[in-house]
Amino acid sequence: MSSSSSRRRDVTVADVAREARVSKAQAARALGAYGAVSEEVRSRVLAAAAALEYRPNELARSMNTGRSNTLGVVVGDIENPFFSLAMRGISDTAKTEGFDVILINTGEDVAAEAEAVRVLLDKRVDGMIVAPASHLSVGHLRDAVDSGRPLVLLDRQIPDLGVDAVMAKMDDISFTAVTHLIDSGHTRIGYVSSLDVGSWSSGQGMGLGLNPVSERLAGMRRAFHTAGMSAPNDLIRLSAGKPQPIREIVEELLLCPDPATAIIASDSLIALEVLHTIQQLEMRIPDDVSFMMYDDMPWALLMTPPITVVAQPVYEIGAAAAKTLLAHILGRPVMPETLVFHSELLLRGSIGSPKKVTEGA
């Protein structure tokens, strides 16, 4: 280990005071930006701290101030670009207020989420933003609330918890998107999501709690009902990839006796798997199957044809979650308990009429 790294780790306020030739109390006030200290002393202390590469003891500071200036964030899958971009919004917003962020990924596993919350509580974060994996197992979230630390939910809502939630409103945009597919001649529309049904369903029908997928399905069913048709429930596939691979699901949707003529992917990760399978089946978009996905990724415009998407203001959702949490921490006015953002349907070239309609025209 280098002497430089050892010095950075071991330098104390007393060392800085000795280097600056001031008292320890004066050094502490200058470094902590509290109390009365002359500009001449402050300059000497800060110069000494820089020369010694002093780093404050964050744990000690949090014990003195009651605040760690740290936010904890728990998400299900940071590989999902939705959470990556939301995290950027959270981090950028936190940084402007002088807060750091600790991120923990759970793989949408409730036990891992509970452990993540425990770890963040132990690290004395000032508040948490959590995208809950379930609305049925929330004891750990109640523990967070009972600890006195503010909690904000991201992308999903649990009304009984009584905490703020920031999310996109999905039912109306889903109605618009599916209505567009129906107006284009599609009645066999598949929907593929990795939502873990077991974590969100109460076991009675499709009661999936308040999350984006349940809202999208509600909008989809409303679109079919408005068109005087029944929704193709046999083409709605949840828990994709757990354990059945997404590739197999897409093959079933496209090769069954009454196949899907259009597929909607619940996020961009699933979209890549769907597009890969369509390519392997030597099918063409939109000639053989129409395709739509949630979330607008840069690569969607580079496809041939460009992909029709439902674009969510993901960065803004993350930033708003951080602002809401910081408002609680800093004693500022708080936004409404549930803050919803609206999404937009961006029509491109991946939607066409079903093949049978075109040939029968």
Rank of each mutant, 00 (worst) to 15 (best):
R7V: 05
D15C: 01
D15V: 02
A17T: 09
K24R: 14
K24A: 10
G35D: 08
V37P: 08
E40S: 07
E40W: 04
S43F: 04
L46P: 03
E58H: 05
E58N: 00
R61S: 03
G66K: 06
T70V: 10
V75F: 03
V75G: 12
G76I: 14
D77R: 13
F83C: 13
F99M: 03
F99Q: 04
L103V: 14
E115P: 00
R118Y: 00
L121E: 11
I129L: 15
V130M: 03
P132Y: 11
S134H: 10
G139F: 00
A144V: 05
G148T: 11
D155S: 13
D155V: 06
D160Y: 06
A165H: 12
M170N: 15
D171C: 01
D172R: 07
F175Q: 11
F175W: 07
T176S: 05
T179F: 00
H180Q: 13
Y191L: 06
V192G: 00
S193I: 07
L195C: 02
V197D: 00
G203F: 03
M206A: 10
R222L: 09
T226R: 12
G228A: 06
M229I: 03
L235N: 06
R237T: 01
S239H: 02
I249S: 06
L253K: 08
A271K: 09
A271G: 11
V274F: 11
I285G: 09
S290H: 05
M292R: 05
D296G: 11
M303F: 10
I307H: 01
V310D: 06
Q312M: 09
P313E: 04
V314I: 14
I317H: 02
T324Y: 14
L326Q: 13
M335P: 13
S343I: 02
L345W: 07
L346E: 11
L347M: 04
